[in-house]
Design a protein around this nucleic acid. Sequence first.
DNA 1: TCTGGGGTCCTAGGACCC
DNA 2: TCTGGGGTCCTAGGACCC
Length: 426
Amino acid sequence: MTNRKLYALLDCNNFYASCERLFRPELEGRPLVVLSNNDGCVIARSAEAKALGIGMGEPYHRCRRLLDTHQVEVFSSNYALYGDLSRRVMDILGRLEPEVEVYSIDEAFFRLPQGSPEQIQANGRAIRATVRRQVGLPVSIGYGPTKTLAKIANRIAKKQPAHDGVFAILPGRNIDQLLSTIEVGEIWGIGRQSTRKLALRGICTGLDLKNADPAWVRKMLTVTGARTQLELRGTPCIDLEAAPSPRKSIVTSRSFGRPVTSLGDLREAVTTYMTIAAAKLRGSHQKTGCLQVFLTTNRFRADAPQYADSRAVNLSLATSTTAELIGRGLTLINELYRPGYVYQKVGVMLTDLQPDSCGQGELFVPPESPKNHELMTALDNINHRWGHDTMRYAAAGFTRPWWLRQAKKSPAYTTNWKELPVVKAW
DNA sequence: TCTGGGGTCCTAGGACCC
DNA sequence: TCTGGGGTCCTAGGACCC
């Protein structure tokens, strides 16, 4: 029993909002929100913005008035910035803790030996202080005997200021009393549909779910629900994944910045997204055996005719060559296109991903020329060195009127020489 | 006018086989 | 009233996550 391990979750507070504030310190203490791609919805809020009652996922056009009234700072999302700051936080955690799983852009699980409550507290405070000092972002850390309980502990650490950003659920403490204060829908893995089913049976709190009949839970919420229940009971079912498993699919899609009706615009967009997806594919040293294109009209426009469809093609020889993928994608969009509709979004999806090294050939298909590989490496190197759009396929278009709206984007402070912040001393 | 994007896992049901 | 049974594989769709 002495070598029992404890799970922990580090989570950056209001991550995107905090990133924006990092380079605009005058916004400290002021309400601030970050919008989704295309400036569509609110996807991050500072504490002050939450207090104003601005909901997560609320459409921008619906809360614009409220934002204006309270002079809320509004930002388009800036993933280059968030990705870079995330990497810095994860690097620090990786130096401090041996067993780390980066779970999302703003969260990481880690595992450590069971210690005294004082030792756990000290561990959390040290990590928190280091991240604050070296990156400048606030984080919260929760500890528990399972990942699910660590998630709950993290939530408490964040919500109750008295804990100062660190909270541990330790064996022997009164876990049941704590679970009785947690709404079942707040638990990791319990979404809206499950919450509704559970409510019908009078299961409303974490404690209710912990004590519910396991057979019933298994039947209603499938094995994932059964696992969650076991985790609430202190039995770890969801392991730490220290080595990230290879990606299984890649999707690139965006809403259009303005309505699109022509096949020409759709073809430019497919080319652009396929270029992004192919670069990502090579970045993870994979190739794809199946590609898919989908498009859709705006489903919120009840007055407009609706159309959505997708089409896929299997490749006899897996590839990661941009030009070939673009060619296939354009054939698919030609087949999908129907005139007379106003399109809102198009996307490409690569599935059946394989490791680059996997050299399975095909009897009646000539192997891919090694020149393709050299060309792609050169392309990637140039774009990495000089910026992601330095060399591109002409079919992607030049003016791109359909490109998404990002009216309020902050500079790429940390990833672009031209946008470095300038410090003035006097 | 205006409503994000990118993933994973699980299950039910159909097709197919012997 | 009767119409086999059991297994595998694939896919679409649902649910969930951040």
